[in-house]
Amino acid sequence: MSETYPKRPSQLFRNLSAKIASVPMILTAVVVFAGGTAWTVLYSFTNSKLLPRFSFVGLDQYYRLWAAPRWGVAVENLAIYGVLSLIFSLAIGFLLAALLDQKIRFEDTFRTIFLYPFALSFIVTGLVWQWLLNPDFGVQAVVRGLGWESFTFNPLYDASIVIYGILIAALWQGTGLVMCLMLAGLRGIDEDIWKAARVDGIPMWKTYLFIVIPMMRPVFITTIVIIASGIIKVYDLVVAQTSGGPGIASEVPAKYVYDYMFFAQNLGQGFAASTMMLLSVIIVVVPWAYLEFGRARRG
């Protein structure tokens, strides 16, 4: 151990090997993510068709986008699906986790059963629920077969409620994961807190609501981010379950982007739609990130 400290090396060269190792990832992030995003936004102001072409048309693509009935339906669907999916997957996920946390028997078995749908892709989930909700083969047919002849449950072919049919499938697939995250959070709560609450005579539901949930804030934030990103990009589930139908009643923005870029061979329109999706993410994420990280720095 030497007594004299060498001159402090330049900040730039600290952990040099680590920095060199991360250069490819930094490049990827900058070129692919940032560069690709900027390129997409730029070309959304052009009239590119099959191939990107730089002929500027101003906001034309955006006017057309917001005049298209299909885009309106897609945005509305995403709003309904997003809000309900967020609320229900959190509520059901937490409820299941809290129930599993009661030191019940066969906890492992239940946990596996609840998490199992998550192992299936959205495509498989969509197909399974397409059959389950099919009026001629699925739930409706089974209940009618039991004797309730007038029973009607036909969400996938009813334009006004089709989005709820998709929501059911999404919740079936996704709540297992939420439950697991919540369970991990619950297990992270110190046993002493429960004991203290019990000594003070606080009922269990109050303990959950006012002590445990606030303590699980980081888990909730992680979960919300995971659910929210899933909501914005929902595409495969709709494709597998209804392919946007009946008519255009279950269209979502991501599907609009894909269809117009590749089927309609109209890149400009697809780019405009994807830029709107990006904008909506920014509107949600930026205030949240500001609150979250801004506070952390101050605190």
């Binding site: 068709k49 099959l50 298209a68 269809d259 117009y260 089927f263 309609a264 061979q265 109209n266 329109q269």
Partner: peptide, 8 residues
């Protein structure tokens, strides 16, 4: 017609 129009 173009694919774009057909899609609409």
């Amino acid at each position: 017609m173009s694919q774009d129009t057909q899609k609409q």
